[in-house]
Amino acid sequence: MIIVYEYMANGTSADHIYKKSGNSCFLSWEQRLKICIGVGRGLEYLHTGTGINEIVIHRDVKSSNILLDENWEPRISDFGFV
């Protein structure tokens, strides 16, 4: 099995919250709120709105599993498929 992720130019939200990487920048409270809302919408979609009979429960939501694209839009990653 292979899992392919889209490149996320701004890394993870953990990089910016905890300043782990050299290219991290300060996130304003407005940016943080938009990221939280985006993650909430993504989780709601996975848990209820996929349009199929099966639901997806992400059991490992944390800042290092939230990827940020070039527009600071969050993407949920690391579903732990085995």
Rank of each mutant, 00 (worst) to 15 (best):
D60W: 00
L68N: 09
F79P: 01
R32P: 00
Y5N: 13
E73V: 15
L68Y: 11
H16V: 06
T48A: 07
K20M: 11
T50I: 06
T50V: 03
Y18Q: 12
Y45R: 05
Y5C: 07
C36D: 11
Y45S: 04
D69H: 09
G40H: 05
K34P: 00
E44S: 12
I52T: 15
I57Y: 11
T50M: 06
G11A: 12
G51A: 05
S64M: 10
H47L: 04
I57V: 12
Q31W: 00
I37T: 09
I66W: 10
E70H: 15
S24T: 09
F26Q: 11
V56R: 01
R32T: 05
S13R: 14
A9Y: 14
D69N: 14
K62T: 04
V56F: 03
K19Q: 13
R32L: 10
E54H: 13
T48N: 10
S63D: 10
G80I: 06
L27K: 06
I52K: 15
E54P: 00
K19F: 12
E30F: 10
I35M: 05
G51H: 03
L43H: 03
Y45I: 04
G22D: 14
W72R: 04
V61C: 13
S21V: 13
W29N: 06
I76K: 07
K34V: 03
Y18E: 11
F81A: 14
S64Q: 12
D60C: 02
F79H: 01
G42E: 04
L43R: 05
F79V: 03
L33Y: 15
W72K: 04
L33V: 13
Y45A: 07
K19N: 12
E30C: 05
T48Y: 09
G22E: 14
C25E: 13
N23Y: 12
Y7A: 08
A9N: 15
L68H: 11
N71E: 13
R41G: 05
C36M: 14
L33G: 08
T50H: 00
G80E: 10
I66L: 13
I52P: 00
S21G: 05
